[in-house]
Amino acid sequence: TEEVEKIVRELQKRGVSQEEIQRILKRNGIDPRDVEHVVRRLR
């Protein structure tokens, strides 16, 4: 989703690792598959 993408991009800008990003998003109830998808697209 748009929202997830924004969050991921923001965290990446701050130098947060992929694993940490995924952990944060999972904690916020976001589907890990969505996270994977977004992270892969932004690489």
Results as ranks from 00 to 15, higher is better:
T1V: 11
T1S: 09
T1D: 08
T1N: 09
T1R: 11
E2P: 09
E2F: 10
E2N: 09
E2L: 09
E2R: 09
E2C: 14
E3F: 12
E3C: 00
E3L: 12
V4H: 02
V4T: 04
V4N: 01
V4K: 02
V4F: 05
V4R: 01
E5Q: 04
K6R: 12
K6W: 07
K6Q: 09
K6H: 08
K6I: 07
K6T: 06
I7A: 10
V8I: 11
V8T: 02
V8H: 01
R9M: 08
R9G: 04
R9Y: 05
E10N: 08
E10C: 09
L11Y: 05
L11N: 00
L11M: 12
Q12V: 15
Q12D: 07
K13R: 10
K13M: 08
K13E: 08
K13C: 03
R14T: 07
R14I: 11
R14N: 09
R14K: 10
R14H: 10
G15C: 04
G15D: 03
G15H: 06
G15T: 01
V16W: 11
V16Q: 04
V16F: 12
S17N: 09
Q18C: 14
Q18S: 12
Q18F: 15
Q18T: 15
Q18K: 12
Q18L: 15
E19F: 11
E20D: 12
E20A: 10
E20F: 06
I21Q: 01
I21K: 00
I21L: 08
I21V: 05
I21C: 04
I21P: 00
Q22R: 13
Q22H: 09
Q22K: 14
R23G: 08
R23P: 00
R23V: 10
R23N: 13
I24G: 00
I24Q: 07
I24P: 00
L25W: 00
L25P: 00
K26N: 09
K26V: 15
K26M: 14
N28F: 14
N28I: 14
G29C: 06
G29V: 01
G29R: 02
G29P: 02
G29Y: 02
G29H: 04
G29F: 03
I30Q: 03
I30W: 12
I30G: 01
I30N: 03
D31P: 07
D31I: 01
D31N: 10
D31Y: 01
D31M: 02
P32Q: 04
P32L: 05
P32I: 06
R33K: 13
R33M: 09
R33D: 10
R33Q: 06
D34W: 14
V35M: 04
V35C: 03
V35S: 02
E36Y: 05
E36T: 03
H37Y: 08
H37K: 14
H37L: 13
V38M: 05
V38D: 01
V38K: 01
R40W: 03
R41Y: 11
R41F: 12
R41G: 12
L42I: 10
L42F: 04
R43E: 15
R43N: 15
